[in-house]
Amino acid sequence: MTKAVLTTKVDPTYDDRPEERYHFPRTYLRQVEAAVRDWIVYYEPRRTTGDVLSKGGRQAYFATARIDGIIPDPSRADHFYALVSGYLEFERAVPFRENFGTYERALTKEDGSTNKGAFGRAVRNMTDEEYDLILMAGYSHTLGLAPRQRPIGDVPEEIHPGFGETAQAPYEVDRRIVEQLVSRPFRDRAFSAAVKTAYADTCAMTGLRIINGGGRSEVQAAHVRPVADRGPDAVSNGVALSSTVHWMFDRGLLSVDENYDLLIAKSTAPDTLSRLLVPERKLRLPERPELWPAQTYLDYHRRQVFKG
């Protein structure tokens, strides 16, 4: 087993759904096979689509997952699906190159320039140490290494009690981070940080944004499709809500339609609920469309949770 980097675009050319599967041609079969039953990181390139002129991608690692197995694509010869589990987005996207260099050593030549041949491969195997460094950069707040990143001018979120000051990458590798990836408390903290950042610490249904005296956001991260019902820890399965609205959303008093309009279960919700919601009665969404609640999860919430 070995770790790997899997490249996927915002609007993928292949049939990728990162929280569930990764679609790839036979060219990369050996590299993906080497990572079966091990962890990978997802990388978003500069190009956002298959168009060679497209741009705007973050050129950053954005999530991790575990490859459970590989199956052939039944409709396309010489193509395969890597089936994944344990998907968890980073609380911050990690650039492939930071001030100390690249996280993947193979991406840098001896003269310090980028190895474009290696960089151009959509699947790349990597060492445990390289993987751990990316995770520590991606989950630095969850691990207590740094305040959570906020828009410029905002008060930084306090570091978790018991940890020291902000660490400068590259971090000292701590192998225990991999063990924490399957821990529910760790995953909840990482998911919460990623969702809060995507929604700029603002409740998507009330428009309220409250930061307490310690610099901590009062908004909460809600799963649209619950984890207990196989909902992933993906920002596209999350929404930032104030505590009261979060409680109502989880109990089906509130939901969201396919146009992101707010739905109220009028037979069970209190009459005063409408006063709490934004006047336009429309979910306030993150800037990046790929972080908006996915239709498949919203549909599940309306069918299985909503009491309207």
Rank of each mutant, 00 (worst) to 15 (best):
Y81K: 01
Y81M: 10
Y81T: 04
A82R: 00
A82L: 05
L83F: 12
V84D: 00
L88N: 03
E89M: 14
E89F: 09
E89L: 07
F90C: 03
A93F: 15
A93E: 11
V94W: 03
V94H: 02
P95G: 07
R97K: 13
E98R: 13
G101W: 09
G101R: 12
G101H: 12
T102A: 10
Y103C: 05
Y103G: 02
E104S: 01
E104T: 06
E104F: 04
R105Y: 10
L107R: 00
E110I: 07
S113P: 00
K116E: 15
G117P: 08
A118W: 04
F119Q: 01
R121Y: 10
R121M: 11
A122P: 06
A122E: 05
V123K: 00
N125P: 02
N125M: 05
M126A: 05
M126Q: 02
D128N: 11
E129N: 14
Y131G: 10
D132Y: 02
D132L: 14
D132T: 12
D132C: 12
L133Q: 07
L135Q: 04
M136F: 14
M136C: 04
G138A: 09
Y139N: 05
H141W: 15
H141S: 08
H141Y: 14
T142A: 14
L143E: 01
L143K: 03
L143Y: 02
P147K: 00
Q149C: 03
Q149V: 14
R150F: 08
P156R: 12
P156F: 13
P156Q: 09
P156H: 13
E157H: 10
E157N: 12
E157V: 07
I159H: 09
H160R: 15
G164C: 13
T166A: 15
A167R: 12
Q168F: 14
Q168C: 12
P170C: 08
P170T: 12
Y171L: 02
E172N: 14
R175Y: 12
R176A: 14
I177W: 00
I177Q: 00
V178E: 11
